[in-house]
């Protein structure tokens, strides 16, 4: 199916860009008139995926984070968020609630759980040494209500 509108952006994996990334996606989809909850759900899911690219994908290095948003007929939104970082060797395990590879005790291991429950669909593809791609989907049903 062909999207009726789309947007691509890329930026450096600096933590100061996390807020820029989620706000940009929110601004792009504003024409669909999402309500407060839908908008907040999408911003949160985007923030999770982008933060994962920065924290886990590239770690201390600086690389590029790629976002591609497509809007389809019926107010369906597809957001893909990608890095060319270290990749994930066991995606199934990484997606388990509370699993985190961070050892400093400051990460909850709930990023994927939040993406899954705040969006309609979540797909993760990853190759160790090549990078990770996360695809999120949600339909806007509220029309502002």
């Amino acid at each position: 199916m062909k999207p009726i509108n789309e947007m691509k952006m890329s930026f450096e994996s600096r933590s100061c860009n996390e807020s820029f990334a989620r706000s940009s996606v929110a601004a792009f989809i504003a024409v669909l008139d999402p309500n407060v909850e839908e908008l907040s759900d999408i911003k949160t899911a985007v923030s999770e995926a982008v933060t994962n690219c920065i924290v886990h994908g590239y770690k201390e290095n600086i690389g590029k984070v790629y976002i591609h948003v497509k809007i389809f007929e019926g107010a369906r939104i597809q957001i893909s968020i990608k890095d060319k970082g270290c990749g994930i060797s066991d995606v199934k395990k990484a997606m388990e609630p509370l699993y985190t590879s961070c050892e400093n005790g400051e990460r909850a291991g709930l990023g994927f759980s939040i993406m899954e429950s705040f969006m309609d669909k979540l797909k993760v593809r990853s190759k160790p040494g090549k990078g990770t791609s996360v695809t999120l989907e949600k339909s806007i049903v509220s029309k502002g209500k």
């Binding site: 923030s47 933060t51 005790g105 909850a108 990023g111």
Partner: peptide
């Protein structure tokens, strides 16, 4: 006005 899982990490870390 906005919070993601980093906020959960913050609460859990302070809990510990």
């Amino acid at each position: 006005t906005f919070m993601d899982s980093s906020g959960i990490g913050l609460v859990m870390g302070r809990y510990k």
